[in-house]
Design a protein around this nucleic acid. Sequence first.
DNA 1: GTCTATAGGAGGATAGAC
DNA 2: GTCTATCCTCCTATAGAC
Lengths: 200, 200
Amino acid sequence: MPRTIGSHSDITGPRVRAAALKLFAEHGFAAVSMRRIASEVGVQAGALYNYTPDKQTLLFELMQTHMEELLAALPQQSDASVMDRLEGFVRFHIAFHHERPDAVFIAYMELRNLDPANFSRIEALRRRYETALEDILGAGSDQGIFDVADTKITTLAVIAMLTGVTTWFRPGGRLSLRAVQDQYWDMVRRMVVRAPDGSV
Amino acid sequence: MPRTIGSHSDITGPRVRAAALKLFAEHGFAAVSMRRIASEVGVQAGALYNYTPDKQTLLFELMQTHMEELLAALPQQSDASVMDRLEGFVRFHIAFHHERPDAVFIAYMELRNLDPANFSRIEALRRRYETALEDILGAGSDQGIFDVADTKITTLAVIAMLTGVTTWFRPGGRLSLRAVQDQYWDMVRRMVVRAPDGSV
DNA sequence: GTCTATAGGAGGATAGAC
DNA sequence: GTCTATCCTCCTATAGAC
């Protein structure tokens, strides 16, 4: 049952966040005004402050939501082989980031616009994600299946490589998402798997 | 011989660009005011307009200078083996980007703050750089030394991976620059080199 | 070449009416 | 919950004195 005319808290809130996500990704946090976000939603600027105490908090909550969804969606598969776990991570990272290009872009580009307390909280979430990959690489090294000189560096290298996909991949282009996943999995596999005896 | 007191065109110009580079990298183009740049240099805001027609041009020229220096410094080595050329590219990219973290950051993060004409000019320079790597990968594939399914994708993957170093590498840390170069060269080599017969 | 002063506008955020 | 109106600050860029 509708409330008073002009009252839309349950739908305006999500629309504010969606508009902010889109505009921050497109133009950058600092370049987007609250008036511009309000205009995108179809309300006046003052109305936004029913949904966020300030612009900084709006940015932080977008980033926090993204990172928490990323961690929640990360496949656990702790009883699978390290090879399958690594393949699962690679395919997951590409697919998940592909579905949320705006949030990914903001999460990487707008860290410097977070105030120090918010920055620390986002960094902690990011570290948890990196650790998931580092654990796989460490386990594979312990088992002698992977040959990784430094799990920390390889973790960062793999994540940078995979995240780079979002800067150029567009559906309907030359390659399907599946084909991109296949190629990146092949590259990552070759980067970390121990070469058979006598092949080096 | 000094000119009139208060006249410093030969030193203020570089200082304006240096201050803008530092502040844009730290806070982002849109978040930095001309007053802030002037304050960093030690002049009033109006004086900046002796060195740039406007803020947009200041950003563009910083990015253009960076990209042209990058292309000029790229080792040619066209008579070396593809393996040596690839190794040279990897070590060069890491070293050059390490020396200019602020310019690198701006060149990747502030593309969206360029107006369309300036964006096209920077994009063209970036494409020339990518083509240098793609040519090496293509030549190695033709010679049967590399096994690269798609030179375009591998080019983007390698560059994203290498550029990622600038986000975490700090001199005086756990690893020397040389050690980082060694590890990334090892990862790139394994990503692209054809496996010996019988090892796959 | 740099200064002060200012035009002219846009920014984040709030107050109070409805 | 949204509106209008507004406070006060900051912005880019320019004009004219020195």
